[in-house]
């Protein structure tokens, strides 16, 4: 379990590093996706414990051995919302490319002059 939390911290910091330092707008969108993945992994790790079973009621499964379903519902909605917002982000990038002729923010001012 501890290893998963380390991966969560690493992924969040990796995504943040990508968002802050990258010059390419598509890469920045990827940074957001990676940060989001870190948060989702955190939620799912928070819900699970050793020897838990999936939260589906079947015969012979006691309710105390099931993992927590609430973080699962939360991360499920977050995934689909993430797809929607990423799509919007990418459509804005395409629009910006048409205006400026580049997706790199360090070259954006020069091409228009």
């Amino acid at each position: 379990m501890q290893a998963a939390y380390l991966a969560v911290i690493y992924l969040f910091c990796l995504g943040l590093y990508c968002v802050v330092t990258e010059k390419n707008l598509i890469k920045i969108a990827m940074g957001f996706v990676i940060m989001e993945a870190g948060v989702l992994l955190f939620l799912v790790c928070l819900a699970s414990f050793p020897d838990g079973v999936p939260p589906i009621v079947l015969e012979g499964v006691t309710s105390s051995s099931m993992v927590d379903p609430i973080p699962h519902a939360l991360s499920l909605t977050a995934i689909v919302i993430g797809a929607g917002t990423t799509g919007y982000m990418l459509s804005l990038i395409i629009r910006l490319y048409r205006q400026a002729g580049t997706v790199r923010i360090d070259r954006m001012g020069r091409t228009e002059q």
């Binding site: 996706v33 790790c45 699970s48 993992v67 699962h72 689909v80 993430g82 797809a83």
Partner: peptide, 27 residues
């Protein structure tokens, strides 16, 4: 796959479809 190992089949299904299918197509 990690979600599946952590007993979250619903989340794993959504992540597989969205992440590998739709998000890749959009990018």
């Amino acid at each position: 796959a990690v979600f599946l190992v952590y007993r979250a089949p619903d989340v794993a299904m959504a992540e597989a479809v969205v992440g590998a299918g739709l998000m890749t197509a959009l990018f």
